[in-house]
Amino acid sequence: MTSPPSNFSADSAKEQQQCIVNDQMGPFTVLYILIFISSLPGNMLSVWAFIRSPRAKQGLSVYLVNLLAADLMLTLALPFKILKDLGVAPWGLMVFHCQASAVTMYISLYASISFIDFIIIHCYLQDCTSQRLLPLQDFGFARLLSVVIWLLLLLIMVPNMALPIQQVQVQQFLSCSALKKGISMHWHALSIFLCTALFLNASVATLISTILSLKRLLGKCNVPGHAMKMQRGIAALAVAYMISFVPYHVVRTPYTLAQTKVITDCQTKRQLFLAKESTFLLATLHLCFDPLIYFYFYSPFRQTVSKVLWCCKSQTINDLEEPTTTAQKEVLV
């Protein structure tokens, strides 16, 4: 009487252990490769432009430079994820991704979220308080706030690198959560919830700044051209912020419950994993568009890039005109 339930329980446990959720990563890998190839030149150009740009003692410049640093971290961590998802990485590199580069990706993601939020608030304050210098706009305060953000994220995420992991059998499709046990898994879940809380606070601040900005724009008939341009930029950046990061955080909490075995159904786990990967892919798209933020909101950066583009255009025009001029001289001779 008791043997069938016992066999059923054993089979069920075995099936649960063999639940593979990351065996359909081919399309995601292709898209991640495209994001990496597309974002790397823009970020390298941004680094060069910031180095060549005049040093501006503004809070905005601090937030933009830190956003660029976060973008570079995420961009450089992408190849490790790509190799793991392709299934061509050696076992040691797969474990390294789970322990180090994947954590780096989350640190850079939430740093980007924080600094984009600061940029939106700074631009709103700069437009509505032309004379007063509020703390968020102050250069020194911006540097201090940036250090606090990085330290907070490191405090939350670095234990995921340092806490011990369990030994698992070498396998083609490694799920990073399979390496965690006990306190490692508990801290992983706690870090996800803390970062989600950070995102919610940042989103509230972004939403309030955007609403006040639009209210100010719509409430005045005669708005200067530069002010209207700034308000539109704030609104566009806020919309991009919501599209990029909100879907991921809607899926992140239930997926974490699946990682911590609160949700045990294999099919549900697979669906949550695919949803998480799809929304995380959407979140990484900001790597391709952040150089537009630097160009639009930071005039020294814009002037440097414009000079380079103008010089390249002038050189191209001269190269095209030179053969014609030479031919004309030969005819005259």
Rank of each mutant, 00 (worst) to 15 (best):
I243D: 02
S203A: 14
L237D: 01
F245I: 05
V251K: 07
K229D: 10
L207C: 15
C266S: 08
I243T: 09
L257K: 03
S184R: 01
P224S: 12
I263E: 02
L218R: 11
Q271I: 12
M228D: 09
T253C: 02
K215E: 11
L282M: 15
K181M: 03
L207D: 05
F245G: 02
E277R: 01
K276N: 04
L257S: 03
F199H: 15
A235H: 07
C288L: 10
T279P: 00
V246H: 11
G225P: 01
L292H: 04
M185S: 14
D290K: 15
A240P: 00
W187D: 09
K269M: 06
P224W: 12
K229E: 12
L287C: 04
T279A: 14
T206C: 15
A178I: 03
L200S: 02
C221A: 06
T264P: 04
I183A: 12
T260F: 05
A205N: 09
T206M: 10
T196H: 06
T256G: 00
G219I: 10
L194S: 04
L274Y: 12
Q231A: 15
S203P: 05
F295A: 14
A227I: 06
I243P: 11
L217N: 06
P224M: 08
L214Q: 14
G182T: 03
A236N: 05
K181V: 04
V250S: 06
L212P: 00
A197R: 04
L292R: 02
I211Y: 12
F245H: 15
P254N: 08
N222L: 06
T268F: 07
H226K: 13
L179E: 07
V251R: 09
A202D: 05
V239P: 01
E277K: 02
V250G: 02
A205C: 13
R270E: 05
L274G: 09
A240Q: 04
E277C: 02
K220D: 15
L282V: 09
Y296H: 09
A178Y: 02
W187K: 00
G219S: 10
F193N: 10
L281E: 01
T279L: 07
K229C: 15
L281H: 03
F193I: 09
V223N: 02
K276P: 01
T253W: 11
F295I: 07
